[in-house]
Design a protein around this nucleic acid. Structure first.
Lengths: 115, 115
DNA sequence: TCTTGACCTGGAGCGCGCTCCAGATACGAG
DNA sequence: CTCGTATCTGGAGCGCGCTCCAGGTCAAGA
């Protein structure tokens, strides 16, 4: 099975090696398997998961939020509890979108005014 | 002309008094007029402007971005320069919305999976 | 007049999310 | 075997956006 060294994994994920280590320390990813010598070896599965995490980070979710997300998806929770959590997160994102739309409307007004 | 004391202004704006002072120090608002005794007196115009600023803050723009915004709108700039700046900011907000939508799609997948 | 509470200033402190560093270890090329 | 580069660890440092604090001033009510 092909794995990636830290630099390659960081490159693929679009974040720094330090960030990857930070996420691992915070329990957001991994623990990543190690080679005999102690170096991290990232699998495709790891990278897929890292992709989810970076997707959420880019959307502005905080580390603590993501820890909750990870906990809910990894541990054994009744499905309705998971769904409730996920819906709640989704609602929070919708509110962010709404805030962005308000700001864009203000910008559009200004653009129309000066345009 | 009716003005508001700091506590009332903060209340109306939905931020803390400290935040209002911070924004003023950073040049995002004001300078706010003072009473004979040195206390701030917020006018309706001040509150309207503060509303714009908090709107953008809620949308995730940073203090430095907002300084740029303030500079562009207050100072004398050719209209096309202003419009270019505003369009650029708008595009950045659109990207944020896109990031949020991607994250929401991921959540929707998970919700569908567990639902 | 006295008390009480809102407000003033400058500056320190804080939580977040990285980012960087020192000193040690692993490993591939020559 | 040697060299150079990549990686390891724990911990310090940093920029952002507030938030809090000390010590003092102002103002309205009893």
């Amino acid at each position: 099975m092909t794995t990636l060294a830290p630099a390659a994994a960081a490159d693929r994920a679009g974040v720094s090696i330090d960030t990857l280590r930070y996420y691992e320390r915070e329990g957001l990813i991994g623990p990543i398997r190690r080679s005999a010598g102690g170096r991290r070896e990232y699998t495709e599965d790891d990278l897929f998961w890292i992709g989810l995490i970076t997707c959420f980070r880019e959307a502005g979710l905080g580390i603590a939020d993501l820890r909750g997300f990870v906990a809910i998806l990894r541990a054994e929770h009744p499905p309705q509890e998971r769904v409730a959590f996920l819906r709640e997160r989704r609602a929070a994102l919708e509110q962010r979108v709404a805030a962005l739309c308000r700001a864009m409307e203000v910008l559009d007004e200004k653009i129309a005014y000066y345009g």
